[in-house]
């Protein structure tokens, strides 16, 4: 804990020091950035933009998981599915996220659905790959045990397969979140009239570095909160049965 707080203070000090070397229009210091951020909260529509973005992040992540998890699990347990799908997962992974965004906006229209589809499709392949690798590590001996003790197919799926896949689903949720929010900002810049990405692009066009940094800072803090406080606690609760690793 002390180490973490210490490193954050050191980073802010470094930023503070560096800001003296550059003009304000290129690198504003931490205090100015914080002031701009506070100003935005006081008289702006920060929450409207932030929630618009968070909504797209959640929607896109939900879509990515809905596609990625079944595909990944299927590829992990079935040889035929693995052989047919692996090339397509690679293709889907290779297509740049900008292309998904352009296709979605042209084919679906400049609306929320298109934004979420673009975000979901971009991150689904990474999640599928994550699950695919994970499912290969499943302990199949436990299925044999369950079968010998008369468990039905459904019981085996729910009580023996699912608990083994769950850690990989959680890992891909965290990993997926990291990808999704970066894509969301890009999609917003391209085709939405609000959100953090829109604001970033707007201030970039006006060459207002203070605002650009203020929005970057805000969004990073919010995402770190989700990752470190919400998801990590969830994981700790779900996987309390695991042995603690001491190094």
């Amino acid at each position: 804990m002390f180490v973490k707080v210490g490193s954050i203070i050191a980073a802010i000090l470094a930023w503070f020091g560096l800001s003296f070397l550059f003009p304000e229009t290129i690198l504003p210091g931490p205090f100015q950035t914080a002031m701009v951020l506070a100003d935005n909260f006081a008289n702006g529509d920060v929450f409207q933009h932030l929630f618009a973005t968070l909504w797209r992040v959640m929607g896109g992540l939900a879509l990515a998981m809905a596609i990625g998890i079944p595909v990944g699990v299927l590829m992990g347990v079935n040889r035929f599915a693995e052989k047919t799908l692996d090339i397509w997962v690679m293709v889907a992974l290779t297509v740049p996220s900008l292309c998904y965004a352009i296709f979605a906006f042209i084919w679906i229209g400049l609306n929320e659905t298109a934004a979420i589809v673009a975000i979901g499709l971009t991150s689904a392949p990474s999640i599928a790959i994550n699950l695919w690798e994970g499912v290969k590590n499943i302990d199949t001996r436990l299925f044999k045990m369950a079968k010998v003790f008369n468990a039905s197919r459904w019981v085996i799926i729910r009580r023996v397969l699912f608990p083994q896949v769950l850690p990989y689903i959680m890992a891909s949720l965290r990993f997926g979140l990291g990808i999704v929010w970066k894509i969301t900002v890009l999609v917003e810049l391209l085709g939405r009239p609000d959100g953090v990405g829109f604001e970033l692009f707007y201030w970039y066009q006006l060459a207002n570095m203070q605002q650009v940094l203020a929005w970057t800072l805000l969004f990073t803090i919010v995402m770190l909160f989700i990752e470190l406080v919400i998801l990590q606690n969830m994981e700790r609760k779900l996987f309390s049965w695991r042995p603690k690793v001491k190094i």
Binding site: R141, L142, K144, A146, F149, V155, F239, W241, R242
Partner: peptide
């Protein structure tokens, strides 16, 4: 059935592992 390895479900406590087969 007893296997060479214990083959317990690692996410369940000792008692819940027994419950698992009792349920079936």
């Amino acid at each position: 059935y007893l296997f060479q390895d214990p083959r317990l479900l690692p996410w369940l406590t000792a008692e819940r592992n027994v419950d698992f087969v009792l349920e079936n």
